[in-house]
Nucleic acid binder design. Structure first.
Lengths: 222, 222
DNA sequence: CGGAAAGGTGAATCAGTTGTCATATTGTTG
DNA sequence: CAACAATATGACAACTGATTCACCTTTCCG
């Protein structure tokens, strides 16, 4: 979003897919491969050591390249983090979107979405750490991530409201509440301790969505 | 938790209240004052610069003492962070507890609690940053914070269930969901942009608690 | 009052990192 | 295959920032 967009709006700019900015976008297949290896290595390294403890040397060692090679593709530590967050953001959103498409209604979509998110986080624990640490390295990347996520989410809630699947209300506030829930549930039950089954979690949250916390109008659903 | 606890279990160890561990707990009033000044300076410094960007020199400068003085009271940068998180944790919990005591039922307590939390975060923005960064410096402090918070919360939900104020369900999962909601709502609407009133937020969440997201049994409440 | 304990100082040390660069290797192209 | 461009290397210069320490000042108390 930062880049040349505002300057040369017309030029589609090839070699843009795999290479946002950076000192030199790879111009050969080998270069692209190396860049990708470094990016993956950074994900793993940041994921386990954390952004600050991880050194460039840790990343390049994990990638199997020399230190200097890093700077062929990335301007520095911050930039590779930005790249990483964008990348991972695309992946989660794509994954969740795919898991949700065949949901009958909004409630079902919420259930499927939550379960898929927990599962995804469990399988890609680096996502959490990289993202959360990015918040304090460059807040804008973090906001971008959640605002992008939130925009998509909001659109879906708006649709659901229109269809009469959910009651009218401030959907933007709801979106942030829902994202917060998923985040904490993921941290607690997917990353820290899997001592409660995802089914149980989804059932609990689903009940909240269907009936709230109060007793009134109880046992509407099995 | 690190300290002498396991060694001299019997000895109550005076001067323990204001001074967990540390190379030397202050033994005079002057020392206690200086220690407190440093702790407060750390809160401000970490809050604005962030844990990693903040240097010991930034803290001591803000506190108006020499660098060496820092090590009279704290073993290092990590330890002062731990201290800080414990401290701040006590404060929020105490504050929220006080704001909630006069609530008639659980739903009202949730409303009051959420509003108070948003307000508190707005007035003490450092809390968020210090806490979140602590997560990656020493995960145990972070877990401790939320587990302590969660225990209290859980007790209250259990009471409410017993009194029939809320429906039966997995209260532990609910607690994490609720903490996540507050956290994100606070970040978005108290720290980033106050573009939605706290009243509106509280009303939206309250509606979720009373009625869920679905349409069924609509307009139960005004 | 006088000596000891507590508190305070800040320059110096020291470990660890980033980013650079001169050089070597690999790939591409006419 | 010659010449050029793109990649890759890894030692190292330059820097940052945490912690130490020998010494000074203040406070406490018999």
């Amino acid at each position: 979003m930062t880049r040349t967009a505002s300057l040369k709006t017309a030029t589609p700019d090839p070699a843009d897919d795999a290479a946002q900015a950076g000192p030199g976008a790879p111009k050969t297949a080998r270069g692209a491969r190396t860049r990708a290896r470094i990016l993956k290595a950074a994900e793993d390294t940041f994921g386990t050591l954390g952004y600050h403890r991880a050194g460039i040397s840790d990343i390049t060692r994990a990638a199997g390249v020399a230190q200097g090679t890093f700077y062929t593709y990335f301007a520095g530590k911050e930039e590779i983090l930005r790249e990483l967050v964008r990348d991972m953001g695309h992946q989660v959103r794509a994954h969740l979107a795919a898991e949700i498409v065949d949901a009958g209604d909004r409630l079902q979509a919420e259930e499927k979405g939550l379960r898929a998110f927990l599962q995804y986080l469990f399988e890609h624990p680096s996502l959490y750490r990289v993202l959360q640490e990015a918040q304090f390295v460059d807040e804008s990347i973090y906001r971008e991530y959640y605002e992008a996520f939130g925009r998509g989410y909001l659109r879906m809630l708006a649709d659901a409201t229109r269809k009469g699947e959910i009651r009218a209300g401030n959907n933007e506030v709801r979106v942030w509440a829902l994202m917060g829930m998923s985040n904490f549930l993921g941290l607690r039950y997917a990353l820290w301790d899997r001592d409660v089954s995802f089914d149980e979690i989804v059932a609990t949250i689903s009940d909240l969505f269907r009936n709230g916390l109060t007793l009134e109008g109880p046992e509407k659903n099995p």
